[in-house]
């Protein structure tokens, strides 16, 4: 029984922790791309990377205040969306898929290379405080909770984690609200029509390219915000955290919760990290495999989950079966 509680506690802790916030944001961004507009962005991790580095370089290396860093992160993801969208948004969907995943890898290679080291710290990345006030330090200085532990029973938080959790989920709620407002409007209707058939939208006088670009930027900026949350919650970033599989985690999160639904990415992220953390804890406790293989097992598990979800429940937890059977 104690074992079960330990496993569940790990799951719950992870489900409401900062990582779940990061992936909820990244998946909401993908929801705007893939769920509502039908854009196949397989390089969401690239947006996370430029967001995180935009923040870290501005605050830690150029010693600017946190809010300037946040703006830099948003601008960096907007720029990436423009660079990617201009050439590929006129092409078939798979071209965007391939060039986004390629661009994300290009960025990771370039950011970890020695020529870029003065700006990016090379393979070792940028810790929160190199010079200046430090992004995580500034963030923590805003924390109104006095030092200590908060919570009940087995569910307790340090004051920093509580602060990160509250602000993180508040941002997620705000973003959900904005996406909800957008998607119920005529603007959202145009996006959905592009997802269904962009030629039909074009024939009705909609500037499909402009809408796709707006959607790519919006979702990309949400990816950038996810990257910034990641940087702040870890107090350091390194290029090899931004491996292509992060994008696919975000896809799994989105599809698990239900693409093209408002709450899908949020519910998906909670559930996904609950599952990942409990499975991992259960594997460690049961001692069925050497500890070195737990990492890859977890990743293989995500892969199988994605296959099964897509094959058997593509509408996810919250999706509408009636809509899914129509998917051509």
């Amino acid at each position: 029984m104690d074992v079960l509680i330990t496993i569940l506690a790990d799951g719950v802790n992870s489900a409401i922790g900062p990582t779940a916030v990061v992936f909820a944001l990244a998946a909401i961004g993908l929801n705007v791309h893939y769920g509502y507009t039908g854009l196949l962005n397989f390089g969401q991790v690239g947006f996370m990377l430029v967001g995180a580095y935009g923040l870290a370089i501005t605050v830690s290396i150029w010693e600017q205040p946190l809010w300037v860093g946040v703006i830099a992160g948003i601008l960096a993801s907007t720029l990436l969306a423009l660079l990617l969208g201009l050439p590929t948004l006129r092409l078939r969907a798979d071209y965007l898929a391939i060039s986004t995943i390629a661009a994300a890898e290009i960025l990771r290679f370039v950011f970890r290379s020695s020529p870029a080291t003065p700006f990016t710290g090379g393979p070792f990345g940028i810790p929160s405080q190199v010079g200046g006030s430090g992004y995580t330090q500034t963030w923590n200085a805003l924390n109104p909770f006095p030092q200590g532990r908060y919570g009940i029973g087995w569910l307790t938080f340090s004051h920093t984690r509580l602060w990160a959790t509250i602000v993180g989920w508040s941002i997620v709620l705000l973003v959900v609200l904005v996406v909800w407002l957008l998607m119920r409007s005529p603007w959202g209707r145009v996006l959905k029509s592009i997802r269904e058939d962009e030629d039909a939208a074009r024939a009705l006088g909609k500037n499909v390219f402009a809408y796709k670009m707006q959607a790519l930027i919006l979702g990309g900026v949400l990816g950038g915000m996810a990257g910034m949350m990641l940087a702040i919650s870890q107090a350091a970033i390194a290029p090899d955290q931004f491996l292509p599989q992060l994008t696919f985690f975000a896809y799994t999160v989105l599809i698990m919760g239900g693409a093209a639904t408002i709450w899908g990415p949020v519910v998906g992220s909670l559930l996904f990290w609950f599952l990942i953390a409990s499975v991992e804890r259960a594997l460690i406790i049961s001692d069925v495999m050497p500890s070195g293989t737990i990492g890859p097992t977890r990743l293989a598990f995500v892969g199988i989950l994605l296959v099964l979800l897509m094959a058997f429940r593509p509408q996810g937890l919250l999706g509408n079966k009636r809509e899914m059977v129509l998917d051509g």
Binding site: V178, L181, L182, S185, P186, W187, G188, R189, V190, K192, S193, R195, E196, D197, D199, A200, A201, A203, L204, G205, K206, Q214, L218, A260, E323, L326, D327, G328
Partner: peptide, 28 residues
């Protein structure tokens, strides 16, 4: 090219031109 996952009414409303709510900021 009926838009499969939009309702008949949404299909129709999409056709109208010059919609103010089709601009991203106004739509909010």
């Amino acid at each position: 090219k009926a838009l499969t996952r939009l309702s008949v009414m949404e299909n129709m409303k999409l056709g109208a031109t010059g919609q103010r709510g089709e601009r991203i900021l106004a739509s909010l």
